[in-house]
């Protein structure tokens, strides 16, 4: 009972946060809405008994990703757009249709059958098990991810700094 209520509250917060995050013109508001979404998601992970994932969600997304986004936004000019003007996205109707169609298609068979699918038993995953899986079975993907992050970091620096000798203003006109 309590779990059901908690689930609906968290889900509502998550959906609202996500909607706000994509619809705000003011980027700072958008980031805070996104943080709300991340936090609600972490709550949903707790409800799934995945406490490790929930803690990492808070640590990485709420704690680090959000603050980095804020940091980047605050370094730009014109931090605040006016929230009143709607984001003019063409084709929003089709996007909305797609977004509605996906859950409908997903839920169609159980709805037709009239019985909800049985959720599988939650695996008792501890941090230790996750760690040994990552370090043994999934070690190659882990290393590939490490390389990905290295590459992204190097690339970001290389693109942000530009060419070594010429000052940025002296590039040829585009």
């Amino acid at each position: 009972m309590i779990e059901g209520v908690a689930f609906y509250i968290l889900s509502t917060v998550a959906v609202l946060g996500a909607l706000l995050a994509v619809s705000r013109r003011n980027l700072v508001h958008g980031v805070f809405a996104l943080l709300l979404f991340f936090a609600a998601l972490s709550g949903l992970f707790v409800m799934l008994m995945a406490d490790y994932v929930a803690a990492v969600q808070v640590l990485v997304y709420v704690g680090a990703v959000g603050i980095l986004q804020l940091f980047a936004i605050m370094l730009t000019e014109h931090v605040t757009g006016d929230d009143l003007r709607r984001l003019g996205a063409r084709g929003w109707f089709w996007g909305l249709m797609l977004a509605v169609a996906l859950p409908v298609v997903l839920l169609l068979p159980p709805l037709l059958n009239g019985e909800p699918p049985v959720p599988p038993a939650a695996p008792q995953s501890t941090a230790r098990q996750l760690g040994s899986q990552l370090m043994e079975h999934y070690v190659v993907p882990l290393e590939v991810l490490a390389l990905l992050l290295t590459g992204a970091l190097i690339g970001a620096v290389a693109v942000a700094h530009g060419p070594e000798k010429d000052p940025p203003g002296k590039d040829r006109p585009a």
Partner: peptide, 25 residues
């Protein structure tokens, strides 16, 4: 008594910066 106690503390500690950033903004 959380099984991931230390991760929880780090996660929450990482939130404390928001107070300062929010104040600045």
């Amino acid at each position: 008594d959380l099984n991931v106690g230390i991760l929880y503390t780090f996660g929450i500690t990482s939130l404390s910066v928001y107070g300062i950033v929010l104040a600045g903004y």
